[in-house]
């Protein structure tokens, strides 16, 4: 991790590779994030309605859903998806390059494989994860709206007028911080496991697997820590 921070600001920069990785991390995850976000919005709304209906408080649904999605569901679910899809991919790709001596070959040809392979991927996951989180929050709220509209006949405008005031600046800021931290975690864990893979094909499988497991574990730990810190600032 220390090496990442010393290399990331030092030229030459691998812009082309970073953009390629941003495309792979961001664009290639859109379909999965869209589907998961949309379903999450619908399911969460459906599950919350009976409890609120008991108290005659279904009008709180938009606010409750907006808070849940923005504060927790979007950053957490998106990052877990990215960990599963991108983290495993990075672990396997770099692991395979390591055991077939491709990383060593880059080093011998007087180039810096760390900058090309690790820095570009970690920057890409760190930049793309917040965008995916924003996108998932939007799609999740859209799914929630369709469900609310179907049951309560609420207009699009009314849904968002009830939902958005519940979200504070602190919620948005905390979500942004979370998504950056989780994106970085996925990238650095995948790269670390892949870059240090050993023992042939077995090692590649292990790198991919451990990258996902460790990323997810770290994301939950970070979630707990960030929530505890952010709650200190809530009025």
């Amino acid at each position: 991790m220390l090496r990442f921070f010393t290399e990331v600001f030092r030229p030459p920069y691998e812009f082309r590779e970073t953009i390629k990785q941003c495309y792979k991390v961001g664009y290639k995850s859109l379909a999965l994030v869209s589907l998961t976000g949309f379903i999450t919005g619908i399911v969460f709304t459906n599950q919350s309605r009976p409890s609120l209906a008991e108290f005659g408080a279904t009008s709180w649904l938009p606010g409750l859903i907006a808070i849940a999605i923005v504060r927790a569901l979007a950053p957490l679910i998106t990052s877990l998806i990215v960990a599963g899809k991108v983290g495993s991919n990075i672990g396997a790709e770099l692991g395979s390059m390591k055991v077939t001596e491709q990383i060593e070959a880059m080093e011998v040809s007087a180039t810096n494989p760390f900058k090309f392979l690790v820095v570009s991927r970690v920057v890409a996951t760190t930049l793309m994860n917040p965008l995916l989180v924003c996108y998932m929050a939007f799609v999740g709220l859209l799914g929630a709206y369709l469900n609310v509209h179907q049951h309560e006949d609420t207009s699009f405008l009314a849904f968002f007028q009830h939902g958005f005031p519940s979200i504070s600046f602190l919620d948005l800021f905390a979500s942004l911080i979370k998504s950056v931290v989780y994106g970085f975690t996925v990238g650095i864990t995948g790269c670390y496991q892949g870059y240090n893979a050993t023992k042939g094909t077995e090692g590649v499988g292990k790198a991919a697997n451990v990258a996902v497991v460790v990323s997810m574990f770290l994301i939950f730990i970070e979630e707990l820590i960030i929530v505890l810190i952010v709650n200190q600032f809530r009025p």
């Binding site: 395979s96 390059m97 077939t100 491709q102 060593e104 070959a105 080093e107 011998v108 040809s109 007087a110």
Partner: peptide, 17 residues
């Protein structure tokens, strides 16, 4: 810099696949 003077052919070629 010194490695610029050295060419290394790997047993498995180690091409970037």
């Amino acid at each position: 810099e010194l490695r610029l003077k050295i060419g290394f052919l790997y047993q498995g070629s180690a091409l970037y696949d």
